[in-house]
Write a protein that binds this DNA or RNA. Structure first.
Length: 445
DNA sequence: GGGTATGATTTAAA
DNA sequence: TTTAAATCATACCC
């Protein structure tokens, strides 16, 4: 473009009497024949312009060149300038600055907050961190899931940036192309800088609307990913049967005070092979380890459900009482006096706790005898109790069959106030002591 | 599909 | 911070 485009400012002063669109020289020496000839010329030029698009590129270039060199061209150009002047006036109103699109702003903010746009934060994202924080301390243990989340988010981020770059490149290319075209066209028709500016802004607007679609899709993808991630975290995973049995054994053998200490919880978690659960805010019950949290959850649920419906749990209580009694008896008969009350089953075998010191066991065993509980019986011989129990079992063919719940088991652990017999002081299970009103005894005595 | 069991979460209290 | 209690949400069973 070595030739300076003839922009609109070059036509100042155009217009005169006779023919407002024609310059002076076109109206001079006017005979009828001349006028007719001029009209014919203009008509020809216009006709050529109209048909220029129907021609091949080479032909069009040749025609264009011919037009540019035509003697009537300056006159025609000025006519077009004048027409343009009026047109530009009419479109001036549409040039107003538009306020930023609120939806676009929302999308931008969201992408920024999710870590998709803006600077990348250590390969992760603000959202991942937020999700981790929302999970209530389970973050470290869920690193696998987090890394999965981060990887997917990073993928989204990458796709987003690639697409965005493509759009921007296409936008720039298209803008350059249109500007070149307009510059080229400005040789044959008047084009104001504002008009070019306007065209560019139209192009940018079109591309930004496409960008908005991209941003919207990205946001949706992030939302889906996030909801899936969080939903997965909320999923309940049942404990396996063995874990439930271990927990139940502990619960029923510590019925008077089913509040395992932190250590006991940890031990239980290990014993049960409790995996990391997806504990959300509050679900952790304030504990440090998520595994311990799950144990705490289990005990919390168990305590409240047991208390609410003791009758329902009687059979279960009987069963576990009998089982622990057998375990105690076995331990006792092997001469291995239980000596580790603090940590469940530190001496016991495969998945059962040694409850030799558990007063709760006695409560159940004594109930099996049909005797009402008497504090004086505290310290009764373990073996005799177990023998009785075995007798009952052999007679009934099962732990509870043939016996009513009341015969087998009477609700224990709950005091008249609806609380547990032992003070609900957590972590006291390590060494159950005989408090006032306590109904259990320690066999080690 | 509906009922129940059960792990997780939330809220309030101590 | 832990717990009780209520509630939610899902797994499981029929």
């Amino acid at each position: 473009m070595d030739e300076q485009p003839r922009l609109m400012h070059s036509h100042a002063g155009v217009g005169m009497a006779g023919h407002p669109g024609l310059p002076q020289h076109m109206q001079e020496g006017g005979g009828a024949t001349d006028a007719d000839g001029r009209k014919q010329d203009i008509g020809d030029i216009l006709q050529q312009i109209m048909t220029i698009t129907d021609q091949s590129l080479d032909e069009a270039q040749a025609r264009k060149h011919a037009l540019n060199c035509h003697r009537m061209k300056p006159a025609l150009f000025n006519v077009l300038c004048e027409i343009k002047e009026k047109t530009v006036l009419s479109i001036r109103g549409a040039q107003e600055e538009e306020p930023p699109d609120p939806q676009l702003m929302r999308l931008d903010n969201m992408l920024l907050a999710e870590g998709v746009s803006g600077p990348e934060k250590g390969g992760g994202s603000a959202a991942a961190a937020a999700a981790a924080a929302a999970s209530g301390g389970a973050g470290a243990d869920n690193s696998a899931e987090h890394s999965d989340y981060r990887a997917k988010l990073s993928q989204i981020r990458q796709i987003y940036h690639t697409e965005l770059e493509k759009y921007e490149q296409a936008c720039n290319e298209f803008t350059t192309h249109v500007m070149n075209l307009l510059r080229e066209q400005s040789r044959t028709r008047p084009i104001s800088p504002k008009e070019i500016e306007r065209m560019v802004s139209i192009i940018h607007r079109k591309f930004s609307s496409i960008q908005m679609q991209l941003k919207q899709s990205t946001c949706e993808a992030v939302m889906i990913l996030r909801s899936r991630f969080l939903d997965a975290r909320r999923k309940r995973r049942n404990f396996n049967k063995q874990a439930t049995e271990i927990l139940n054994e502990y619960f029923y053998s510590h019925l008077s005070n089913p509040y395992p200490s932190e250590e006991a919880k940890e031990e239980l978690a290990k014993k049960c092979a409790i995996t990391v659960a997806q504990l959300g805010p509050g679900g952790g019950r304030g504990s440090v380890s998520p595994m311990i949290c799950r144990v705490s959850n289990w005990f919390g649920n168990k305590r409240i459900r047991y208390k609410k419906n003791i009758g329902k749990f009687q059979e279960e209580a009987n069963m576990y009482a009998a089982r622990t009694a057998v375990n105690a008896a076995n331990a006792s008969s092997h001469g291995s006096q239980a000596n580790s009350p603090s940590t469940p089953n530190s001496a016991g075998s495969a998945g059962s706790f040694n409850m030799s010191n558990s007063g709760d066991l006695f409560m159940s065993v004594q109930s099996l005898n049909g005797d009402s509980y008497q504090g004086a019986q505290v310290g009764a011989n373990v073996q005799s109790q177990v023998d009785t129990l075995r007798h009952v079992i052999s007679q009934t063919g099962g732990y509870s069959e043939g016996l009513t719940a009341n015969q087998m088991y009477s609700p224990q652990g709950i005091n008249a106030n609806g609380g547990w017999q032992d003070a609900p002081t957590p972590s006291s299970v390590t060494s159950p002591t005989e408090g006032p009103g306590s109904v259990h005894s320690d066999t080690s005595n």
